[in-house]
Amino acid sequence: MPLLEVQDLRTEFRAAQGSVTAVDGVSFSVDAGEMVALVGESGCGKSATAQSIMGLIVPPIGRVTGGKVLFEGRDLLTMKPRELRAVRGKGIAMIFQDPMTSLNPVLTIGKQLTESLRLHLSLNGRAARARAIELLEMVRIPAPETRLSSYPHQFSGGMRQRVMIAMALSCRPRLILADEITTALDVTIQAQILDLLRDLAAETGTAVLFITHDLGVVAGMAERVNVMYAGQIVERATTAELFHRPQMPYTWGLLGSVPRLDQARGGKLRPIAGQPPELSAMPTGCRFQPRCTHAHDLCAESPPALTAARGDTGHAQLTRCWGMQDVPRGGWLSLDDRHADQPKQEK
């Protein structure tokens, strides 16, 4: 049994004209101790997915309208608030992009850490303080005893994110949801934080759902990757498969959009034309179809499912593309088409 299993999750937000579906039938799983990435561009529903798992999407802003979030086999979506609080404290912890939103600016770092330890682990004052120092040490904050009396604004962005990692780990959760935790940081600080999270997760056996828009970061962190586009997962693979044999034209586009330090310079980037669809005006067929250079008529007619590609045995890789699927009128694409300059077109 996976540690976390999200099944057919649907999340809607209130919008000016009725409601919009930000997460539309998302399913994926995270095993104990595993690091799984959720990657995609701005607005594709990554945070909404994580917030739905944490039970943070509540009316009137939005609502989880379907699906299951099974944590150790129990559905968080149908749990009573009390049980849920217990799970949220000890079972699952979340780290956000902007630590200032989760830190209280008028309380010292020490106070905030010890409060959480006393609440969730019922430690007494002295034990909580000792554990807080240990935690700050663990996230490599120099002079932790003196740092306990600092306020959040006296810390740099990187140090605040370390404190958030310390807080997340403080109750020994089995799963951490890390939502764009290094996006606001500089690369050298990003490298420090990723290094720290990777080490600590491995040491403590904590599973991580690692959310990012940066494919480069995914390559060094995750064992498996889910690529999201317009509210849906469009490709799922092991990290090695995703980077070495990507199957979905959207993934091809993402990889072609970023210049790489390890490759020869020169040549134009291959951006994806246009922009992602509005939530209120989703294409009827494949959601990527308006931007896809490989689309056939079928793509505009009906939406493809997330399935294994034609003849692709021995892999757990799934893709949401008609061109890859073994169906009538489908299956016109192969891995080589990724680099094709002139996409082939029927008719």
Binding site: T188, G216, A219, T239, R260
Partner: peptide
């Protein structure tokens, strides 16, 4: 050395200079 490279083989082999 801190710049991530979108290739898991390279990333896992790479030795970073962490400041």
């Amino acid at each position: 050395s801190a710049v991530p490279i979108p290739d898991p083989l390279i990333e896992t082999e790479r030795r970073r200079r962490i400041l």
